[in-house]
Simulated assay, not measured.
Amino acid sequence: MRGTAVTFEGVSKRFGSVVALDDFSLRIEPGEFVTLLGASGSGKSTALNIIAGFSDATSGDVRIGNRSVLGVPSEGRNVGMVFQNFALFPHMSVAENVAFPLRMRKVGRAEIDERVQRALDMVRLGGFAARKPAALSGGQRQRVALARAVVFEPPVLLMDECLSALDLKLREELQEEIRRIHDQIGATSIFVTHDQGEALTMSDRVAVLAGGRIEQIDRPDVLYDRPATRFVADFIGRTNLIEAEPVAGGLRIPGIDTVLPAAPGQRVISLRPERIARASHLTDADKITFSARLEQSSFQGATVDHQVRLANGTELTLREGRSGAFTPLQPGAEVALAFRRQDAVILADR
């Protein structure tokens, strides 16, 4: 199986007065795993439904490979789809469910049997062919849905919030499985989720959507470390968003006597909690130090989150690992803290 490119060119979608996608443009390369990430109403599922043929674009063009698929019915697009609710036929066995798209394509019986077994082995359900969906766990049913989506070897695989109904541990296991299967089959995978952890874990690139537009698209590490806007910084992970004071030469963090260079229009600083450390633990020569009072600590298992307050009232969160030289802090204690200058990300205020 080889993936093919998927391209949106200026796609808009309106439902009456509601704009679901607004001049949406994106190219997904062959074999790439791209996640559309956003809150409810951001346009991510609308974009996926337009690729799948379940919804029509109001304007613009969508291509799979070099072919425009506008007006092409969903069954003629040769894409695999994994739904949030599994969408399995309850009266059919696992093998019959997986075989269904092959039967619709008039594939021969012997080849169907071979492909179904190969697909079930791929999702590690080789011994479950005779069972009915009701006899499976939620995770097993989702694996069957995934096997059904890939059994006919589509060049494009679409997944719409397909892990959201599962518990945390099972979601994490299936994240690894889906990524493994993607790498194995080589299809172009487009995954829709509101869960930033899923997006960061699984994707080659993540497109953060808001209001039917892409706020930023990049590798997961770039999105996290170098968000382009306040919205992206706040949506991806947890961060301290600090309203800075414009001064000669840049921006000053209230309560911290230092100036950071900034471009016109930049007013907000993003500082991840794990980038703040006790000053004695940070050896960088170019660190920025300050003092704060501990308000409270929150146990997170492997880490502890501390809420601290600067002398001017600014509140910050820092996150410490509980291994090595970790020692607990007591509420009310004055603590010398620091961060590296390059870890303070200057953002446009939008």
Rank of each mutant, 00 (worst) to 15 (best):
I242Y: 12
I51K: 00
A119I: 07
L166D: 02
F235Q: 00
Q184F: 07
L223H: 00
R278A: 13
V150E: 04
L200I: 03
P133M: 11
S291G: 14
S25E: 07
T58K: 12
L125Q: 05
E334A: 15
D257E: 15
R230D: 09
V156F: 05
Q296V: 13
A338K: 15
G186Q: 05
L70F: 05
L36E: 01
Q175Y: 02
P73T: 05
P273W: 11
Q84C: 07
G265I: 03
A292P: 11
G255R: 14
G139T: 06
A147P: 09
V247I: 03
S323D: 13
L174N: 01
E96C: 02
I214L: 07
M104S: 09
G43K: 03
R341L: 10
S270N: 14
G265Y: 00
D22C: 10
S291Q: 15
G321D: 09
G43D: 03
G186P: 09
Q342A: 10
M202W: 00
L136S: 11
S291V: 14
E96H: 02
A292M: 12
I178P: 01
D204Q: 01
L157K: 03
K132W: 07
F339W: 12
D225N: 15
G3I: 01
P261L: 01
V345G: 10
H91V: 04
R238N: 12
K287Q: 11
S93H: 01
A39V: 11
F89K: 13
L251N: 07
G65Y: 00
P254G: 11
V247A: 09
F326T: 11
C162L: 06
A5Q: 00
R14D: 06
R148N: 08
G127K: 14
D234R: 10
V98C: 04
R2T: 07
L329G: 05
N240T: 07
S280Y: 14
G80H: 06
T303R: 14
L294S: 02
L316K: 07
P261T: 02
L200F: 01
L329Y: 02
A199Y: 02
G321P: 08
D22V: 11
T193S: 04
V62I: 09
P246G: 05
I50L: 09
F86L: 11
V151F: 10
L158E: 05
S137H: 09
G197P: 04
R115Q: 14
P254A: 08
L102R: 05
S189D: 04
I190F: 06
G139Y: 01
V308S: 09
V19P: 08
E177H: 06
E153L: 11
D257H: 12
Q196N: 03
F33Y: 03
L136R: 15
G212Q: 05
D284Y: 12
E114K: 15
L136W: 10
E243G: 14
V123C: 06
N49V: 05
L310T: 10
I178K: 02
V11H: 03
A99Y: 00
L158V: 04
H91G: 09
S42Q: 02
E198H: 01
G255W: 14
D286K: 12
A95Y: 00
P73N: 08
A207Y: 04
G332M: 08
G108K: 04
A119K: 06
D22A: 13
I236V: 04
L241N: 13
R143T: 03
L316Q: 04
A87Q: 11
V69I: 15
A292D: 10
L26E: 05
N312S: 15
D121L: 12
Q84Y: 00
F152Q: 09
F191H: 06
V34A: 00
E245S: 15
